[in-house]
Amino acid sequence: MDIRWLEDFLALVEMRNFTRAAEFRNVSQAAFSRRIQSLEHWVGTALIVKGAVPVRLTDAGEDFRAEAAASVERLLGARAKIRSSQFALMSQVRIATPNCLARSDFKRVLKMLKGRVKCSFSVIVGNTQDVTARYMAGDADILLCHDNPALPSPIHTDAQERLVVRRDRFLPYAVLNRHKREAFGFPGTEKAPFPLIAYSHKAYFMRLFEHVLERAPVDPAYRISVQCDMSDVLKEIIMEGHGVGWLPVSAVDDAAARVIGPIGGPEWALDVEICAYRPIRKLAPEVEALWAALKEEIRNGH
């Protein structure tokens, strides 16, 4: 039995969708389905109701869910304990965070904690999906990421403690040049769609964008001009005047704010949170001290 099968099963339980769960686990849907089938074969019965949309568990699946979560938690905890006893490097606090927050809020957290804790950091950086997966696999002690509770994620479990570091906002940006803005014609028409600087389909911010469209009072008309999964790359393209794209406010530094600004009304914006996550189980003293200091700083409004 492969622990990845349990992690796949738990991801599917949380996301209730094979496609999204496979994307989160960074495997093809076909491979993901085979791994779920392998787990069912190992257990000896069906865990998923065939053909149900959204995904539903069988009675056996419901019974197995808690055991699977507990098993993964125990195994990851055992691995972390063994690693910490064998490698001095593990005395570092390992923080996983997406690229955009590594450039903004990780520095903010360091400033908040300056002089409060004595430890070194190992920072895991990537896109939101990858760093979340690595955190869930036990490769990091703390995850710092954007979050919107309306979007299902394997991170939304009782096994995780969630701390809101600060509020952020996700909204469309375009160059401040008036003539270019008017030429974009946001939010577009069927005959004249606006050029969209878009995230790739697997990106977390693409899911936020889709959620914005679901809540919007009208359907925008757009054509994708450029597509990428990194907000920093999209920001540069927006600054060059190639179209309209959604960015978190935290990704727009002072230099960018002199070139680009929000476009459209509040109906195109989405409130999000920048959150820190840690497992509920007891962690290394350095991690516990950092977490306690971070909670106190946030409680004091810093």
Rank of each mutant, 00 (worst) to 15 (best):
M1C: 03
E7W: 00
L12N: 08
L12G: 10
E14K: 13
M15A: 09
N17Q: 11
T19Q: 14
T19R: 14
A21P: 13
A22N: 10
E23A: 12
F24P: 03
R25E: 14
N26P: 06
V27T: 13
A30Y: 14
F32G: 00
L39R: 05
W42M: 10
T45E: 15
V53D: 11
P54G: 04
V55N: 01
V55D: 02
D59F: 03
G61D: 04
D63R: 09
A66W: 12
A68C: 05
V72S: 08
R74Q: 14
L75H: 13
A78E: 14
S84G: 15
Q86L: 14
F87K: 08
A88I: 12
L89H: 13
L89W: 12
V93D: 05
R94G: 07
R94S: 11
T97C: 08
P98R: 02
P98V: 04
F106P: 01
R108M: 04
R108A: 08
K111S: 15
L113N: 09
R116M: 06
R116G: 10
V117W: 10
C119F: 09
S120T: 11
S120Y: 15
F121C: 01
F121Y: 14
F121W: 07
S122F: 11
V125L: 00
Q129P: 06
D130S: 10
V131Y: 07
T132N: 13
Y135Q: 01
A137E: 12
A140Y: 04
D141M: 03
D141Q: 04
D141T: 01
H146S: 01
S153N: 08
H156N: 08
T157L: 03
D158L: 12
D158W: 11
A159P: 11
A159F: 13
Q160R: 13
L163T: 02
V164S: 09
V165C: 05
L171V: 10
L171Y: 07
P172F: 10
A174G: 15
L176M: 14
R178P: 15
A183L: 10
F184T: 02
F184Y: 15
K191P: 08
K191Y: 14
P193C: 09
P195R: 06
A198G: 10
S200F: 07
S200Q: 13
A203C: 01
Y204H: 02
F205L: 03
M206W: 10
E210S: 10
E210V: 02
V212T: 12
V212N: 11
E214F: 12
P217G: 12
D219V: 07
D219C: 09
S225R: 07
Q227C: 14
D229R: 07
M230E: 15
S231T: 09
I237D: 07
I238S: 02
M239I: 01
V244C: 04
V244M: 04
W246C: 00
S250H: 00
S250K: 00
V252H: 07
D253L: 02
R258F: 05
V259G: 01
G261N: 03
P262F: 03
I263P: 02
G264T: 02
G264F: 05
W268K: 01
D271L: 01
D271N: 11
V272D: 00
I274S: 00
C275K: 02
A276T: 00
Y277R: 00
P279Y: 05
K282C: 02
P285N: 06
V287K: 06
V287Q: 09
A292D: 14
E296Y: 06
